[in-house]
Amino acid sequence: MNKYIYLGIMVGVSCLIRVLPLTLIRKQIKNKFIKSFLYYVPYVTLAVMTFPAIIEATSSPVAGAFALILGIIASWAGLGLFPVSVICCLVVFILELFI
């Protein structure tokens, strides 16, 4: 087993999965269900991947939970990607000093 063949398969398959739909679907999809489905996909995927993963990623689950809550509040208040990320990191860093 050659490690470069393994890595080649990984790179090749990852590339095909991502590039094929984007290059093959050139028309606007007309079907209302498919359009709605594709509209919701990103939000659902990201939400599923955020929770509970965020409380499993930190050393202390409580710190992760606080990062989630404060992140949601900050984002709801209108802050952008970078500030929200920084707030989440700081919350964990500070809380884990005490926990």
Binding site: T58, S60, G71, E96
Partner: peptide
């Protein structure tokens, strides 16, 4: 401690995208 804090940066971004 640094890894733990940095690891939520990603999730912070996800939150800022979906909220």
């Amino acid at each position: 401690r640094a890894v733990s804090a940095l690891s939520v940066a990603l999730y912070g971004m996800f939150i800022a995208i979906i909220i």
